[in-house]
Design a protein around this nucleic acid. Structure first.
Lengths: 170, 170
DNA sequence: TACTAGTGGTTCCAATTGGAATCAAGTGGG
DNA sequence: CCCACTTGATTCCAATTGGAACCACTAGTA
């Protein structure tokens, strides 16, 4: 740990890529969240929960699986599930295959709210990102983000329920 | 509000660009924060505060200006400044030009901690983003993020202290 | 079956964040 | 100079998040 090579600082372009990435995310995240709250009565996180459930063929996922897809901690998901359940957009069911498990199920009302919010949400994403770029740039961005997401998936330790990757330490 | 045009849903590439962007940020943010906490004893937010102050020629900024650069709310910055002040990395001074104002000043210790944390931080950013891409891709990303950040700056309402943009409503 | 370890979810607690209210100080018009 | 209004910063409170502890159930093994 003492042989440290010379630090390769970021050059001007790399700096712009990194700080632009951070800044764009901050702004876009806020923008999307604001829009969803105002027009859909949902937070961005809640929209994502419903979206993932809706995408799932059966309309339900067990809590752990859902937390993993959301890239949030299990307790974080428990919290959101409770909120959504209060709002009647999600229901919890016992997992028939595993007594411990809980299935998060999107309700009809949940689907209704999601479908109602979706167009405005997509518009916001277009307005804040996609439609600002040429088709070629969108394709470039998609390629770049595919590279990074795949790499980071293996690199980053998610909150609690992490898949034990390569070597378990003992 | 009733004439709604057909929703232009995201095509497969646009979808990848958007979801990849979200996922990459989530993972990278976590990764960077973890690294800074472990090796630098700082959170990502605290690192950014110190970084902004260090970048500033005089080594200080008034709280509002700093909050704006950080894209965080003023109370959020007050909180972080308090933390950093406790840790001795930042000092508050009266703003000679405006009795109301407070200058956040980076201390010598703050600079020391920042400089010590910087190399590891840069490595992490390289490892999680920059070095995964070709020079051309980094340039593409920089270009794209410049477009979006500039556009979103004007579009998104920041927390409390927003610059009054075009029309004030009354 | 009994024992141990691992997994799924929740609960508890501490940290962080945003919004609204508050307070002090600057600004412009009588 | 006084008043209304804006601005800079903080405080208070509610919402959200992560980590650790905890409980219930499953799985592997003797």
């Amino acid at each position: 740990m003492c042989v440290m090579s010379e630090t390769r600082w970021l050059n001007e372009t790399e700096q712009r890529a990194w700080s632009g990435f951070l800044e764009t995310y901050e702004l876009l995240d806020r923008h999307v969240d604001q829009q969803l709250r105002q027009e859909g009565g949902l937070t961005k996180v809640q929209y994502e929960v419903l979206h993932h459930l809706n995408e799932s063929p059966a309309g339900h996922l067990c809590m752990s699986e859902l937390a993993e897809r959301m890239l949030c901690s299990r307790n974080g998901l428990t919290y959101q599930a409770t909120q959504l359940e209060k709002a009647g957009l999600l229901r919890r069911e016992a997992n028939p295959a595993d007594e411990r498990g809980v299935l998060a199920v999107i309700t009809d009302e949940g689907r209704r709210v999601l479908h109602q919010a979706a167009p405005g949400h997509v518009s916001t994403v277009r307005e804040g990102l996609i439609d600002l770029l040429t088709d070629e740039q969108v394709a470039q961005l998609a390629t770049i983000m595919d590279i990074t997401r795949r790499h980071l998936r293996g690199l980053v330790q998610l909150p609690p329920a992490r898949k034990r990757a390569a070597g378990t330490t003992h």
